[in-house]
Amino acid sequence: MSSMLDMVAMVELSVREKSICGSLVAVLVIAIAYFCRTASWIAADAVDPGEVAGLSVGALILLIAVQLVFQGLLALASRDDPTDERDRLIAAVASRNAYIVLQVGLWLVICHIVAAMAMQHTAAARWFAPFATAQLGLLAAIAAELAKYCSQLVYYRRGI
């Protein structure tokens, strides 16, 4: 009986893993919707500051609302979920991985700014405008966050 319970415990997701999964899905879905929209504006060379501000604020509010509802329901449905040394180690190593992704993103932004100088008078100039650079920076930050969530899930499942 004891070993059966042990096996069940191995496949079930802990509260923390469910929380990370929820955050991962929320950020991924909202980020995809956001970047598809901004990319379409850049492609059409029709970037309107008012629309950009509206979309950014809307995406942020939606993300906060989804997170509040999901994490709140999870907290209500679950018992107390304390953290221990393993959770802290996993969070630290996942943050290190996220930092690497952020570093790569930062270098891409720098390359993008340098490339923008060469692309000023070409047909592709709109993809190197300051708005596009800002989107690339935001993408790097979100990619780093996603890398952190994915790393945590992998370390919880495969071990650390």
């Binding site: 415990a9 191995m10 802990s14 221990d84 393993r86 959770d87």
Partner: peptide
């Protein structure tokens, strides 16, 4: 010992 059951399993 002051850790979670998930950590004992791990």
């Amino acid at each position: 010992i002051g850790v979670t059951r998930q950590t004992v399993i791990a």
